[in-house]
């Protein structure tokens, strides 16, 4: 792979739900270590784009290239291995397993990849320290605040050392101060591991943590880097 070229690139993505064209020829590309904000009005197709890029949703048409491999040419097992090994995820809420403690939640992706419990939890704790929630290790998600829960989710998303972090409105349910803290920790942590971040947000103050932005409108993308 050309190191200066894109890590993940999509062309001509189409996705229709019933009569709704969620994606209508969307394009996207991100380089290693880059933070790209995906902006646009509600219902414009931002989440659908993120789900397609991450191999969660299969587009009706179009190509998605990850490090020279075409996502649609992979079988389910290969795509799921990619999601577990190379990708990390943060959503607005609801991603932590309520029955597990915070450290077990953070360790979960490593456990699913076959790591031993003690090793997994040691690595998990290191990540929790980096985002300053190691003191919550033995608490359950229901016992921590929204901001703390999102920081636990940041730790969990990065614990496997992903190359791409997909964040869909990661601060959407937080107040300003907690949102800022989460964005600072998330982007610092991602930059320290050179992970690329696809950051879906409609908030400009959140997008200001990105290197550049694209705008999604009616299922199509406008790359603002090359707009002027």
């Amino acid at each position: 792979m050309n190191p200066a070229g894109p890590l993940l690139a999509a062309r001509g993505l189409h996705k229709t739900y019933g009569h709704t064209k969620a994606l209508d020829g969307a394009e996207f590309s991100i380089r290693p270590g880059e933070v790209v904000a995906v902006m646009g009005p509600s219902g414009s197709g931002k989440s659908t784009l993120l789900h397609c890029l991450a191999g969660i949703v299969t587009p009706d048409a179009g190509s998605i290239d990850y490090q020279g491999r075409e996502l649609s040419a992979m079988n389910d097992a290969e795509r799921s291995a990619l999601r577990r090994g190379e990708f990390g995820f943060i959503f607005q809420f609801g991603q932590l397993v309520p029955e597990l403690t915070c450290v077990e939640n953070v360790a979960l992706p490593l456990r699913l990849n076959g790591a031993r419990r003690r090793d997994a939890e040691r690595t998990a704790l290191e990540w929790m320290e980096r985002v300053e929630v190691d003191d919550l290790a033995s608490k359950r998600p229901g016992e921590v605040s929204g901001g703390q829960g999102q920081r636990v989710a940041v730790a969990r998303s990065l614990v496997t050392g992903p190359r791409v972090l997909f964040a869909d409105e990661p601060t959407g349910a937080l107040d300003s101060l907690n949102g800022e803290r989460v964005m600072q920790l998330l982007t610092d942590a991602a930059r320290s591991t050179d992970a690329a971040v696809v950051l879906v947000t409609h908030e400009a103050r959140v997008a200001a943590y990105s290197d550049r932005e694209i705008v999604v409108r009616d299922g199509r993308c406008r790359d603002m880097e090359h707009a002027l």
Binding site: Y209, R217, M224, A227
Partner: peptide
């Protein structure tokens, strides 16, 4: 819409510096 996107981009440029 294009005008609005262009202006947003210019605002974001300054917001990144401030951030």
């Amino acid at each position: 819409a294009e005008l609005l996107d262009t202006q947003r981009s210019e605002h974001l440029r300054m917001m990144r510096v401030l951030t």
